[in-house]
Write a protein that binds this DNA or RNA. Structure first.
Lengths: 353, 353
DNA sequence: TAATTTAATGCAAACGTTTGCAATAATCCA
DNA sequence: TGGATTATTGCAAACGTTTGCATTAAATTA
């Protein structure tokens, strides 16, 4: 690396016979600097091709104007969409975003938290791994009053700002929709219960069964990492003996799509023989045949709320001891062919409000 | 923001009655510091919960140990996969990655380049927008000898390190495959020619036609931003009058999948009536019906090459004036049902080596 | 044992920017 | 015109870490 040719505010100050503090104040529109001096300084900065050094400003201010984001994987529809919204909104506020992936590994999440702290990010936004149960690695942010927001996959019993989908209701309406379409024997494929969003969806599933007086059967609920491979294996189990279920509610779309594929492979018709509902409204649900019903979580809205809340935390007054609230983003059933059929006039009319 | 409780190397130095320079050297495993002192220092650092301040080290060293990455959109399969590989590999080298999206906007790309420069990233990796034709905003990196690598969507006539897929050959084999499957009237749907990877694919398409003595028809080639909406509209044009083409080679999978959908909507059978080949081997090509043939670009390999090259540039000697080479990542046709059919024994055997 | 060489550590300054308090200049008022 | 007030700018230090050169301590050699 050869010697830098970069101009600093010292160069501007020398050219204009001003102090560096005046130059700094002029570049930052300080009210005590005259308009005339501001104009001279900015003109010279442009002329010299001056570019600020964010490391220096960050060190002095103890603010980096950068936000850290940790998601499990950006190749998944939901995190990718939210990341995009968050980055675009933060840019409006003059913040940079560092997007990091934990690859669903607790160890990697811990390392990323430490690295981002060392980089002195001004805030941290996190969707945790499937397996994070000890959240103490986030204490450094909380204890130093650095804004910390969790979304989607969020901690249980950890005092922090949380923004999540209405997972309980998602499980409830995903299931009641199947019931109202005539299903009497519904399987639920859930993620691992170490992650509370899946347990909320299971609770909603159970609640719907109860309400429609259908029996809850432990053997009809599966807990697994929601990959295509696991979904295929679970289908092999489910359809290894009769009676087959007539409805399946899956906690992600990858699983729902795979179930549909498996049914086709054993000549089970979807939706005539078995109806399917997925979760997240991944665009893939539209392009497969038959298109798959799914619960939309409005990632755009969630991303915007994340940034709004983060800005409030950054600009507001927070102290150690503040009690943080939880914010719920609505969900909505998107009905497609995988669950099509005559609506059974039931005891309870499905309300989508 | 209340007063920081963060420990610095000054605290460690005081506790051990050492100078800060010794503490710094010990923490960085400098050969001149005794093993005993190193151990004492590291133990005290752990005891005090010391965490380095990357802004300070970066300012002093003029290195941030951070790499900037600019891609058009992370929600697209190819950029998301490469970003993931790049981040994972960089972590092995102790580098952070800042992932940014240009949203295919030249203005946003310029702003991102300036912001990343201000953040003093140690290198920059870029896949440009569809419309970037003036690359001068990257001069600041090149002129200051900060490693700069382009991949996939790369500049034409700009002296910089480039890693791209074999787009010419991709166009060639995508087309010859259709020819050997019996197609005689092949449409090519290309992206905008402002982006050289599409013009390379068009050249491959033309070359294949020529080689098999099929006529090139200007009306059989379309240039557009490769969205689902544009693909649908182009299909409306193509199939608005007979004779219909019997093969379509599309420059991305979104377009190929949409074409398949359109054909179904007008009761054209795929592959019997019209065969389709896409580009990038997006996972969606496997789950649609019929599964779509596509050109695989090996994003994993590309991501690894990007990081390897970047490390060479960072650790090597480069000066203003260095001539940079171009590296080609192989491609491979992935044959699926959308282009299935009897192989026509042709003049030229398709070689996939 | 003294001189020489090697090992280990310390001092002071660098990095670029920002800001509290002091100093200076300009303006207003009696 | 002199004093008071306001506007504008400058000085010096801060931020946390690293490193060239100097100094000191320890080890080796004659």
């Amino acid at each position: 690396m050869s010697k830098r040719t970069e101009k600093t505010i010292v160069d501007i100050a020398e050219e204009l016979q001003l102090s560096v503090s005046t130059v700094s104040r002029a570049l930052n529109d300080h009210p005590n600097i005259s308009a005339k001096t501001k104009e001279r300084v900015k003109k010279t900065a442009r002329k010299l091709g001056y570019r600020p050094n964010a490391l220096a400003a960050g060190l002095r201010n103890n603010k980096s104007k950068t936000i850290g984001l940790i998601v499990p994987r950006i190749s998944m529809f939901f995190p990718a969409t939210i990341s995009t919204i968050i980055q675009n909104k933060l840019q409006e506020f003059g913040y940079n975003l560092i997007i990091c992936q934990s690859n669903d590994s607790y160890e990697q999440e811990v390392a990323l938290v430490n690295t981002l702290y060392s980089a002195r990010v001004d805030g941290l936004v996190v969707s945790t791994t499937l397996y994070t149960s000890d959240f103490s690695h986030f204490d450094i942010f909380r204890d130093n009053n650095i804004p910390l927001v969790f979304f989607d996959r969020v901690p249980k019993d950890y005092n922090v700002k949380v923004i999540k989908g209405d997972d309980y209701r998602g499980g409830y309406i995903g299931t009641t929709h199947l019931i109202e379409k005539g299903c009497k024997d519904i399987v639920h494929i859930s993620g691992p219960l170490t992650c509370c969003l899946y347990s909320d969806r299971v609770a909603g599933y159970k609640s719907a069964l109860q309400e429609f007086k259908l029996p809850f059967k432990k053997s009809r609920v599966f807990f697994q990492e929601l990959t295509k491979e696991n979904a295929w294996q679970t289908c092999e189990k489910i359809f290894s003996q009769k009676p087959y279920p007539d409805g399946i509610f899956a906690s992600n779309d990858t699983t729902a799509i795979t179930i549909s594929e498996y049914c086709r492979s054993i000549n089970l018709r979807v939706p005539e023989d078995v109806k399917i509902v997925g979760y997240s409204n991944d665009p893939r649900t539209e392009i497969v045949s038959p298109p798959v019903s799914s619960i939309d979580q409005f990632p755009g809205m969630m991303g915007e709320r994340v940034v709004a809340v983060l800005m409030e935390l950054i600009n507001g007054r927070q102290t150690v001891g503040t009690r943080y609230s939880q914010e719920i983003i609505p969900i909505q059933l998107i009905e497609r062919q995988s669950s099509a059929g005559k609506v059974k006039v039931g005891k309870k009319k499905l309300s989508l409000s």
